[in-house]
Simulated scan of single mutants.
Amino acid sequence: MRAFIFPGQGSQKVGMGAELAAASEAARDVFGEVDEALKQKLSVLMREGPEEELTLTENAQAAIMANAIATVRVLERDFGVSVFEAANCVAGHSLGEYTALASIGAFSLADAARLLKLRGQAMQAAVPVGEGTMAVLLGADIDQARALAAAAAQGEVCEVANDNDPSQVVLSGHTAAIERAVALTKEHGIKRGMILNVSAPFHSSLMAPAAERMAEALSQTPPAALALPLYANVTAAPVTDAEEERALLVEQVTGRVRWRESVLAMRAGGVEHFVELGGKVVGPMVGRIDREAQVTSLVTMQDLEAFAKQVLG
Rank of each mutant, 00 (worst) to 15 (best):
E187D: 12
H203L: 08
I190E: 07
S204A: 14
L171P: 03
L184T: 15
E179V: 04
M194F: 09
P166R: 14
A183K: 05
E179I: 01
L171H: 06
G189E: 14
F202A: 08
S167Q: 12
H174T: 00
D165A: 14
K186H: 03
L206W: 08
I195H: 06
A208L: 15
I190H: 08
S205H: 15
I195R: 01
T185D: 10
K191W: 08
G173V: 03
M207T: 13
R192S: 13
A200L: 11
R180D: 04
N197T: 02
H203I: 14
S172L: 02
A208H: 05
M194D: 06
S205V: 11
G189V: 13
S172E: 10
F202T: 07
N197P: 15
P166K: 12
S167W: 15
R192I: 12
A208V: 14
G193F: 06
A200V: 06
E179S: 10
D165Q: 04
I190D: 12
R180M: 01
V170M: 04
S199I: 05
T175G: 01
S199G: 07
S167F: 12
Q168E: 14
H188Y: 10
G193Q: 10
R192N: 13
L196Q: 08
S205G: 04
R180G: 00
M207Y: 14
H188S: 04
H188M: 07
R180W: 02
A177L: 01
P201V: 10
S199P: 09
L184C: 06
T185Q: 03
A181G: 10
E179P: 06
V169W: 03
N197R: 13
S204V: 04
A183W: 14
G173P: 02
Q168L: 11
S204I: 04
V182P: 01
F202Q: 12
S199D: 12
G189C: 08
S167D: 10
M194L: 14
A208K: 08
L184Y: 13
L184I: 03
L196G: 13
N197C: 06
T175M: 09
E187T: 05
G189S: 13
S167E: 13
L206R: 03
I190V: 08
S199F: 06
L196A: 11
K186D: 11
F202Y: 07
P166H: 05
P166V: 15
I178D: 03
A183M: 14
H174C: 00
A183S: 13
V182L: 09
A200G: 02
S205F: 12
H174R: 00
D165N: 11
L171R: 09
I195W: 01
L171A: 01
S167C: 13
I178K: 00
A208G: 15
P166L: 05
K186M: 06
P201R: 07
A200S: 14
A177K: 00
E187V: 09
D165W: 11
E187H: 12
A176S: 04
V198N: 08
V170F: 06
R180F: 03
A177Q: 00
S204F: 03
S167H: 13
P201E: 13
V182G: 03
L206Q: 12
V198F: 08
S205P: 05
G193I: 07
A177Y: 00
A177S: 01
A200W: 08
